[in-house]
Amino acid sequence: MAALTVRALGLEFRNPVVLASGPAGFGLELAAAFDLSRIGALTTKTVTLEPRRGNPQPRLVDAPCGVLNSIGLQNPGCDAFEVDLLPQIRAFPTRRIVSIAGRSPEEVAALASRLAGEQGVDVLEVNLSCPNVHGETVADNPETVRAFVRGARSASTRPILAKLPGEGKYLDLVEAALSAGADGVALINALRGMRIHTETGLPLLDRQVGGLCGPAIFPIALHRVFEARKAFPETVIVGTGGVSDLRGALEMLFAGADLIGFGFAVMADPTRVFRLAQELDEWLTKRGIADVDQLRGASHRGGIHVR
């Protein structure tokens, strides 16, 4: 048995497997079928102040090696979240990361403040990169990131993760988030993409753009995590984007991720995600590696066989 515990954000995570925000919903359906103590943390679907209906159909469009999603932050709003969902989420035998998003830094602050007194919210993740809502939250510039993260920071003493896009000058965005008080970053969100109907010549998605997720974006996500680790050796990174198996998880750890987010994989094959910590343990044990910590960032220091 290798040690899988990850110490990050002032907390202990049982293992590095994190369900990323979105495909797992609020975890209720998964909790009915799987033992949540087999994962390190669950990230909730993004909560906004007011309820949101999300986008019209179609919300999912196939793409080579992945899918374009356009859910549009459908969620019941903070009131219903606190009353109906949080009491159940609080009882989950794993860490709970609550994803929040707002139209302004003030809205983010209001949400963070609402959740500040709630038990069972281990970490706040500020979603700054949803590609699927109009006129907000794809934070393309450091100023926006800084303002939104400051909003959350001003209202909460909880650990804060900034969920950032993997596009543009993403390292500047990481820098902005950290300088505004984030304790770490989740890299990357789905990448903006589109598809067009070949019979009509019209975009398949109502908003034209959707978020590309799945194995298609894995090498991109891996590279962003690698670069972020190089630039910020000490910060906490949740490496997310197209990881679907043990091999992808290992690569994320080598690139420098502390925790690994699984999004698309939860949609495609949840059983596999819940088996992953065990697979990781077996892999480490077979090689005589005592602690998963030994893998983190190994690509930056000559690999795992050189210390």
């Binding site: 979105g22 495909p23 797992a24 919903g25 609020f26 975890g27 209720l28 359906e29 998964l30 079928a33 679907k45 209906r53 999300g54 019209p56 159909q57 179609p58 919300r59 999912l60 469009v61 196939d62 899918v67 999603n69 859910i71 459908q74 939860v266 949609m267 949840p270």
Partner: peptide, 20 residues
């Protein structure tokens, strides 16, 4: 609709109805 997770979590298949 294009089904995502299949088990009710991802909201990929959600449609508008009179009950939300």
């Amino acid at each position: 609709t294009r089904i995502g997770c299949g088990f009710g979590a991802c909201q990929g298949c959600s449609v508008e109805t009179r009950s939300g």
